[in-house]
Design a protein around this nucleic acid. Sequence first.
DNA 1: CTGTTAGCGCTTTCAA
DNA 2: TTGAAAGCGCTAACAG
Lengths: 349, 349
Amino acid sequence: MLQIKRPSIVDVAELAKVSKQTVSRVINESPNVSEKTRQRVLQAIEALGFRRSELARNFSQGRTHSLGVVGRDLNYFGTRTYIGIARQAEALGYSLLLKELPESGIEQIEPMLNALLDRHVDGILWAVPEIADNHAWLDSGLLARIPVPMVFLSMAPRQEATVVAYDNFAGGELATRYLLDCGRKHIGHIAGPQEWWDASERQRGWETTLQQAGMKVLPEHVAMGNWDAASGEAAFHRLLASYPALDAVFVANDKMALGVLLAAHEKGLRIPEDLAVIGFDDITESAYFHPPLTTIFQDKAALGQQAVKTLAHRIEQKFQPAVQHVLESTPLTHQLIVRKTTPAGVIKT
Amino acid sequence: MLQIKRPSIVDVAELAKVSKQTVSRVINESPNVSEKTRQRVLQAIEALGFRRSELARNFSQGRTHSLGVVGRDLNYFGTRTYIGIARQAEALGYSLLLKELPESGIEQIEPMLNALLDRHVDGILWAVPEIADNHAWLDSGLLARIPVPMVFLSMAPRQEATVVAYDNFAGGELATRYLLDCGRKHIGHIAGPQEWWDASERQRGWETTLQQAGMKVLPEHVAMGNWDAASGEAAFHRLLASYPALDAVFVANDKMALGVLLAAHEKGLRIPEDLAVIGFDDITESAYFHPPLTTIFQDKAALGQQAVKTLAHRIEQKFQPAVQHVLESTPLTHQLIVRKTTPAGVIKT
DNA sequence: CTGTTAGCGCTTTCAA
DNA sequence: TTGAAAGCGCTAACAG
């Protein structure tokens, strides 16, 4: 099973009777080649089935036209986010080098970044959710020593770091205000894990909105889950116990809301008459929950796209500081999707 | 903003007063280095903060220790599959180069493969679901011309192609047999898109099992969906119309089953008394459906792991034909998960 | 045990 | 418009 060597630029040069330099010019579409030789070279390329080795090119140029993507469990940001990332990267001519950051934590971070840098990625996209202080390394000065542009997905804004994120605070406000508009007076919250930035922002949005409406917010008006349906169910039981007057609940994601719906049903609560429920995310299933879930939509694909655009923009700036690059931007705003878990007839602008 | 050049092997050599070859030996842990010089070199490495450039190494070795992964929409195989792939690749020392195959189709395939080969991936993992004839290119001889090992995820077995897949036929049998064991006499099927290999296999499992039980299987006993909850709902309405005696339904995936549950509820059917329902996949939400869904579990992470193991095994074989490599294998068998959408009290071995 | 010499396949000077 | 030469950072093959 003889391995046939890929033809190189030299093979093409020999066949076309030119220098390899000329071949290089042809494949790079340099204008400084006569039409005649260009044709000869193109023929040789065709005849040999030549393709330029990106590996060699990357090596010689010192850049790889690839982006390192560090994720955690792929599934937090969800497949939609990754699709956005992948499509946008492809569109912009970047390859993706994917890494999974293990739970273990902080001591894995530097090795991971190094692995990417050793492969000379042009930029790095950090798609690890911010949990507790797992982004604390940013303040250690490590960031400044990373020689390539870096973009962070959905983390708390901080100095010197480029962040692409939804405004979860605003999302929390949107959900809560809607429940207020429905006329509910006792709006509880089932939060994601406190240590998650996204979760605490959503909670802050809920709290602030209620306070601005002149309502009191007590600790027993919140229960915490871990994003899973099971935890939503458990949290709902606790919440109902600690806040019996409850007539509406803002759940920090749709999966937990699924658990809430089940639990409420078991308790014999009518939805939305006795209890209004609003979720967060608008996962595809939520339209088929029982009853269909009112929720806050966020376009995860757009989030991924925007992150890649931003990163690519910074890379181009670095490699060609001369030219003015424009950064296209996708708007990232939450949308309210009203379905059956909230009362009908409410006008919302 | 001066870009500091990464120290190279040569810088280390100079500082340690040895040849770069010796440095190379040290970083590759060759035994043929005296302890004394090794220490000197290590110190120099430390002092300079040297790290070997994987890019250069890849180039010089002609292999990249990376796997090309071609997926479609990331979400068909699901995040679990990708987590399995990512973790196993990491464990085996491979990087992942990710590509998304656009829907458009066949004319994208060769460019995609070429893009991967131009970057000299060591192997390719094809994670695109087999739909209609979108794998027909395999029979065109293209495969034979791909110079690196390739592994296909979840497609129909064929000559000359390495496939890692669940036996969907067996899964269909398992589900159907269970409904029979429950004593149901009118078992319908809501299938995935006919053109999907996985879908048609599951259907075949259903059909065969019923026939072996001496039952007649008619076209009106099946309705087709597109994997989405919405399509499951619609398909159920059609199925009920064409097969009024229906007392059980095997749904080809959990999402569609979700739609079925909603539709059945609206029809006033009691589950499982009037209608037993079994899904397929065991997505995390299904335990929280209303009622909790009986389903067939498949470990997608294990699927991804097994695919990477298989691919890595073939790669090692190629690069070091001398040594005997053992291929660890993860068992890929479906499991029945009994919850509330099927009658209780059935003993199942 | 260590050093020397090539060479991987391309791009980037610099000359002609 | 073309070519020659050097170099990217490493490994491989051969000497000593």
